[in-house]
Design a binder for these strands. Structure first.
Lengths: 163, 163
DNA sequence: GGTAAGTAGCTTACCGCTAAGCTACTTACG
DNA sequence: CGTAAGTAGCTTAGCGGTAAGCTACTTACC
């Protein structure tokens, strides 16, 4: 169970040396969460690069894909799901439409709105990219047993509920 | 032990509906890590705003503070520690120097280099801000017992080592 | 001692995001 | 019916980051 010291251990040790009264337990959790998020984010970016899309663009097409047939959502639904402003959404849709992975059509029921749909090419690409992305994530988990992964998932669910 | 369904559970359920053969266990871990990192990052940004600095600027001054007296590091040491390019570092140092929280002096031993040091004002501010930041993080952990926090820390250390 | 390679920090160009403001349209209500 | 309020999507300005290139300086080697 005892593991090597890592970069976060070094930071908490430094704090203990100059401010021994501080409780650095929260730092030990969130410091690692930030680093894991950054490292894995970079790894995913690199993975999706093979498919010619960025991680943010992947998220858009993946959201449409997992919504099921007919793979159609409004820009507003997408920006709400992806926690993105409409400005950011417009930019992503522009690129993905230009790349031929999705298309924008007017909403027949509301002339203010649009419907965003995956193209056949987008569907084929995302089905491959999702598998590749999961494989990268799975590889990062090889140091943990299945039981540990389940335990970690439970603890993270609890933590996410509290933040 | 059974918890409510959260946003990540909804996403994995959607994937299961359209691609039941996919193993979404990695997604359940990293999806939550991304969300926790984003939510806590926003919360920290808001916390440090009270002290007139951004989270990135906090990290610079905090790195100097925890390095111990005489609270002096080179821009290169700082940018390496903070995983930032020299361009980004220059920008942060410019702002912090203008705000009077640190100062740049020539390195007496290497005429190419600089020494960055906290000012008295910077030291006082960071000692307050660190405490406030830890308090925000501690509050986010209230849903977990001390034992669970320790367990989570161990699992995250293991995961960080693998990514 | 002179030259080549490496290193430190700054500048510039660019990229993606947010915040705020815009137009166009729908909906609710007197 | 007409007006006010709300909503959808786009545009613009600004911010913070990276990547690449620059100068200045040190170090290693012949």
């Amino acid at each position: 169970m005892s593991e090597d010291k890592d970069a976060v251990d070094a930071i908490t040790a430094q704090w203990f040396a100059v401010r021994p009264e501080l409780d650095t337990a929260p730092m030990a959790v969130f410091g690692r969460i930030y680093r894991i998020a950054k490292a894995m984010g970079d790894a995913m970016e690199e993975c999706y690069q093979r498919f010619g899309i960025s991680r943010g663009e992947f998220d858009v097409v993946a959201t449409l894909r997992r919504s099921g047939a007919p793979y159609t959502l409004s820009p507003r639904q997408l920006s709400a799901t992806l926690m993105l402003t409409t400005g950011g959404m417009t930019g992503r849709l522009d690129k993905l439409e230009k790349a031929g992975l999705l298309c924008r059509k007017p909403d027949p029921h509301d002339r203010r709105g649009l419907q965003v749909t995956i193209t056949d090419r987008g569907l084929a690409l995302i089905d491959e990219a999702v598998g590749a992305g999961l494989e990268v994530q799975r590889a990062a988990l090889t140091g943990l047993t299945d039981e540990e992964v389940a335990q970690l998932t439970g603890l993270l669910r609890k933590l996410l509920a509290g933040v």
